[in-house]
Design a protein around this nucleic acid. Structure first.
Lengths: 334, 334
DNA sequence: CTACCCGGTGGTATCGATACCATGAAGGCG
DNA sequence: CGCCTTCATGGTATCGATACCACCGGGTAG
């Protein structure tokens, strides 16, 4: 499809409507500044010519790109996908659009993508990681635009952060086990290096040491390929081998918890009677009656929406750390 | 963080390097057109000043936005997320960036987002749906830019399409059941209206009618909330009630298949001995040893990458329908 | 009655990079 | 030795919308 047709310009619309260009601009951007009669004429001309405002030109002359850049770790985890949805929806209400790239959890990739993003002169930047290279920090500082880090709440955000505390979540789950009468509580994690969040959850578990009968932490070695329930099964086996009297297992993720649960059933262990199990994330299946997993729910969309709100409101205080919290959902496994 | 700092302009870089603006432009866009010595000087100036090329200005003067717009149905399904990843990665190699919005499977929303997208003067548009409103069609036709529809292969694409045939996939699964000695094959689906793809899979099943001992199709009524394995359990129950001698169940998705499998185990039915089960999508857990589901694998990232390739190559023939195929993965449930 | 204000509108300069054409220097060939 | 090509570089116009300021007419206050 050769691009034969040229785009209609604002000047042509103005001529058609018998007004000045600037009036067309106002009619489209700020209708209240134009008299109703003129507005109608402009609207008619726009419709007849099929005019679509050229933001590339608008951005240059107004020095407002109406774009927000997002560098997300991955889209292939439901939580980030939900965040991006909340973000786009929220931004759309303010006439902003999202420019997206994925970093694959690699600060180097993030740093490499940053200049390209900044080239668009975005009005704000959203990052889902709090781990940046030196170069990235320099670029961000120099750019002098609002930067929002989502999901984790770094002690010293580049600018501002919206998220929740993985550590507090780990603590909440562990305490839940204690409060429901279990003191021999184990933590089941994975040894994936990129996952600082997982590590924080374990720290949250450790924070409860005083209330537990000794630490029981296991990290299953991650193999290449998808992380499936197999890990959970393997991990539970190890836990029961080392500490046969374990009463509860706090798992680093729902997927792992699911595997642990299946393994427990296979062994005929009564859940939650003899053994309680919890996950993290509240994925699709967690609420399914066959699984009914006790877990932590994070409202990813809400985090994205809140970020959008802050951006639209403008003037984000430096150092802001907005804790959106989490909810512990008790189901049948605890 | 008040935007105190102004962006450095190309002119300042040029002054610093002692060359003309245009030379800076060439040095950054097309280094081979500049002598090595000059290139070094420009590079040095760029580094010292922390210059980042302004694409908003570049887009206007070159009439090339270096942006591709994407309207995806949802990001909260792994397959689309993978497609978006393939797309961004592929486009990045050609210096193109992705502008993203989600339509939530609604053609009306898609049509509403279209003008905003076109306002950026994207060099191409990617849609993951083949269902467009009349207004959307008009806009797309007038815009005269390459439009790629992904995932399904419509008979008459707006311009071009990259995807695979859900119908053929349904047929492949059914035929697989026949070839492994089953003739009493059922189809288990969901009654969700937006899901044309699911319907196509069922049509694929029906296409095999000649080789089957009668049609056995069931659609479980979708309730609000996440689609979990519960549906599969319920559906299998209904199938066995109506046709107790069923030998195989082709499920519309992995999630449903998983539920059916659990239900079968609960009833002590030998899988795959007495009953074979297949899914669709090859989700995370399908390869897990506890599940080991026979299913169809679609390479979403490859579809995205192929789309990027076509866009970068330019000159996409009108009416192109590129079938990326699928792979049937036989595991332990058939 | 005059002076001032304000809503509505248009003219012109401007945003920052790139296209196009011109220029000058270096090198090849008859 | 001079002409023509090629390469490297710069000047200037341009992309399309918006900011800024000016303007006009009518209404209100003094």
């Amino acid at each position: 499809m050769a691009d034969g047709r040229k785009w209609v310009t604002m000047g042509e619309v103005a001529a058609r409507a018998g007004v000045g260009k600037i009036t067309v601009s106002r009619a489209l951007r700020n209708p209240s500044k134009v008299s109703p009669g003129t507005l109608r004429k402009v609207q008619a001309a726009v419709d007849e010519l099929g005019y679509v405002l050229d933001e590339t030109a608008g951005a240059l002359s107004s020095q407002r790109s109406r774009v927000v850049g997002a560098l997300v770790s991955t889209l292939e985890e439901a939580v980030f996908a939900a965040t991006v949805r909340g973000l786009t929806e929220g931004l759309a209400e303010g006439g902003l659009q999202l420019m997206l790239s994925a970093t694959q959890y690699d600060p180097g990739t993030e740093a490499a993508l940053l200049p390209t993003m900044l080239g668009r002169r975005p009005e704000a930047l959203v990052l889902t990681s709090d781990d940046h290279t030196e170069a990235a920090h320099r670029l961000l500082a120099r750019a002098g635009l609002p930067v929002l880090e989502l999901w984790e709440l770094p002690k010293q955000p580049v600018h501002a952060a919206v998220g929740f505390s993985n550590r507090a979540a780990g603590t909440a789950l562990t305490r839940h086990m204690v409060e429901t009468g279990r003191r021999r509580v184990a933590f089941l994690g994975l040894d994936r290096q990129h996952d600082r969040r997982a590590r924080l959850r374990m720290e949250g578990y450790r924070d409860c040491a005083g209330q537990l009968a000794g630490e029981r932490a296991v990290a299953v070695k991650a193999r290449p390929g998808a992380v499936g329930p197999d890990y959970g099964a393997e991990g539970l086996a190890e836990i029961l081998r080392r500490w046969p009297d374990t009463e509860a297992v706090v798992c680093v993720s729902d997927m792992v918890a699911m595997g642990a649960l299946c393994e427990a059933r296979r062994r005929g262990i009564d859940v939650p009677g003899r053994l309680a199990i919890s996950g993290f994330g509240d994925f699709d299946m967690a609420q399914d009656s066959a699984l009914a997993l006790t877990t932590i729910h994070i409202d990813g969309a809400a985090i994205g929406r809140r970020a959008a709100e802050l951006i639209l409101a403008g003037d984000i205080p430096c150092g802001l750390r907005e804790d959106m919290g989490f909810s512990l959902i008790r189901r049948a496994t605890s």
